[in-house]
């Protein structure tokens, strides 16, 4: 029987993997595999390494798939599921694919939960232009973001966020995975449990929708 100890480890923070070349990618994949194998055997320090390497990406994906509300809870839920599922992880797919699948499952659960809540309380999610403007202003006056990004950058970020909001969940999932997270279409199909052809058609549809929206907002691409 596998013994798993969850004692708090003390490790240096490992920067997130940013593959730049094929050799770097394969080296990172190899190191990642070794860490995953250690974590599968119950090594808590290896699990913490995995958390530090992937939590940024998981967080960004969840933010793109859902929204900012309860984001910390969602990230925690993802890594709790990872911890629970690691003993059953056989490595038939890559760890990143498996992690994205868990992330997508958590996001889907969250959406279902929100949809149930809204239907029970009959609250329609109507995002008006004024609300969007308010959000942009809030971001603009937020000291954390004000110094980091100029106003036009915030404007474009707001446009991208709104363009994601107009997409249906299916198209949004594919666009976030393939275009924002740069996941290959085959892996996206594996994560979402749909054929590759469906991924491609949804991606085409999502890009068309977003392009039309951006053009309406005066952005020419």
């Amino acid at each position: 029987m596998r013994s798993r100890t969850a004692q708090e480890p003390a490790l240096a923070v490992v920067p997130e993997a940013e593959p730049s070349s094929p050799s770097t990618t394969s080296a990172i994949a190899g190191a990642d595999r070794a860490i995953v194998q250690r974590a599968v055997k119950g090594d808590a320090r290896a699990f913490q390494l995995l958390y530090q390497q992937h939590q940024g990406r998981v967080r960004a994906t969840l933010y793109s798939l859902c929204d900012a509300e309860g984001l910390d809870d969602l990230v925690q839920e993802v890594f709790l599921r990872v911890w629970r599922g690691l003993p059953r992880f056989r490595g038939s797919s890559s760890f990143a694919t498996w992690l994205y699948r868990i992330t997508w499952n958590v996001a889907s659960d969250r959406r279902r939960e929100l949809a149930r809540y809204r239907s029970r309380h009959q609250v329609a999610r109507v995002t008006t232009d004024s609300e969007q403007a308010d959000r942009a202003i809030e971001q603009a006056i937020d000291p954390a973001t004000r110094d980091a990004a100029p106003l036009n950058q915030l404007h474009y970020q707001d446009l991208v966020q709104r363009s994601l909001d107009i997409l249906g969940f299916e198209a949004r999932d594919v666009l976030v995975l393939c275009d924002l997270e740069d996941v290959p279409q085959k892996e996206a199909a594996e994560i979402l449990g749909i054929p590759v052809g469906t991924v491609k058609s949804r991606l085409f549809y999502a890009r068309t929708q977003i392009r039309q929206f951006l053009q309406q907002q005066g952005v020419e691409l």
């Binding site: 969850a6 960004a60 925690q76 991208v160």
Partner: peptide, 24 residues
């Protein structure tokens, strides 16, 4: 289009400082 989306992708709000501790 893809470049534009990646460049202007909204950044998620920063995590709570004690989140990792809480997860642990």
């Amino acid at each position: 289009l893809v470049e534009f989306l990646r460049l202007h992708r909204p950044a998620p709000p920063p995590a709570h400082p004690a989140m990792e501790q809480h997860l642990w």
